[in-house]
Amino acid sequence: MPHSIPIVVATAIMLAIAPACAQSPMPGGMPPPAGMSLAESTAMRFPQPVRAGDLAHRLILQPVESQIILGRVRSVVRNAQGDVSVVMNFGGFYGYGGRLIAVPIDAMVLLGDEMEVVAYTPKQLAAFATFTPDATTPVADDTILKVGLAKPSH
């Protein structure tokens, strides 16, 4: 079938370009060294004051060169022990959809106007329980939190 030639060529081109959409194996914002607590690892990252309300809706990225979106900040909460977590939607597409999980803020870093989860892989985040507001209190927008930094992941 001579008419199939364009389809074959087009498919070949698509296959050649497809790896461009694949994720780079390049390591990004380094995970905390083994045995180090999240708080200790944040202390190494020059934690900076940031207004809790300013974190709302920020994109949360995976620390890889292709800057894969894990979700968005939905709210910031504090548990009975006083630990602050970022509630994010996880497992959706491009920051939309998915379910809510609460990630300790010390597992995350600021990257300009975005955030990254450095202490957990997406696989580990997938094992997080779905967030329920019980036993947490929302952190007021004007609260100043201290969050660690990272350089861009490449």
Binding site: I17, P19, A20, C21, A22, Q23, S24, L59, L61, E65, S66, Q67, I68, I69, Y94, P152, H154
Partner: peptide, 16 residues
């Protein structure tokens, strides 16, 4: 482009 992607997740491999 690769140093700061525009479409998150899209990254061009070295051979391109």
């Amino acid at each position: 482009y690769n140093d700061d992607v525009i479409i998150n997740g899209l990254h061009f491999p070295g051979y391109l």
